[in-house]
């Protein structure tokens, strides 16, 4: 059961990821991306990371994907939904890079000694994550929040600049 479910979710992630890069319609790519992101959330559930899975859905599907779809809708004419591909000449170079990357990842996959957890899964991860964020990883947490604040101010400045 667990193996079957995992295989289904993994197949969904890979299939929708292929769909994202092969479809010619930008908005279809965005929708396929939703499948990929959901699948990754499903994989987190398999790792007993329920909080992380919900975060993945709320941030990526509910936030970033909506932004992407907004971007596609606003930068595109409403009538034309097909896009023109302009990067054809780069194909040979891309093929070489992708092949090397694939070989590297495959080698890594087979050479890594995968660690199987022998401890029992924790029931509630929220408290552990919260405590870790506010003690051990406090600096990272604060740096990330300052970065987000700067991005927010920058976006507001760009959007509200009155002299154009």
């Amino acid at each position: 059961m667990a193996a079957l479910g995992f295989n289904l979710i993994a197949a969904m992630v890979i299939f929708t990821a292929f769909w994202v890069v092969t479809t010619s319609k930008l908005i279809h790519a965005a929708v396929a991306l939703m499948g990929t992101l959901f699948g990754v959330a499903g994989l987190y559930v398999y790792l007993y990371a329920d909080f992380l899975a919900a975060t993945q859905v709320i941030i990526y599907v509910g936030g970033i994907l909506v932004l992407i779809i907004f971007g596609v809708m606003l930068t595109h004419r409403v009538s034309g939904i097909d896009t023109l591909q302009t990067n054809m000449p780069n194909r040979p170079a891309a093929a070489v890079v992708v092949f090397l990357l694939f070989m590297g990842l495959t080698a890594l996959l087979f050479r890594t000694p995968w660690h199987m957890a022998d401890a029992a899964p924790v029931v509630s991860t929220v408290e552990i994550i919260g405590a870790a964020l506010l003690t051990r990883y406090l600096l990272h947490f604060e740096v990330a929040s300052v970065l987000l604040l700067v991005a927010l101010l920058g976006a507001a400045y760009l959007a509200r600049r009155e002299d154009g």
Partner: peptide, 23 residues
Amino acid sequence: NIGVFFISAVSSVGVIGVILAGW
């Protein structure tokens, strides 16, 4: 055990359906 968060996460997905329907 993440009940409140789960509901927030799930209901944030619905908006994609709205945008897709409109588009």
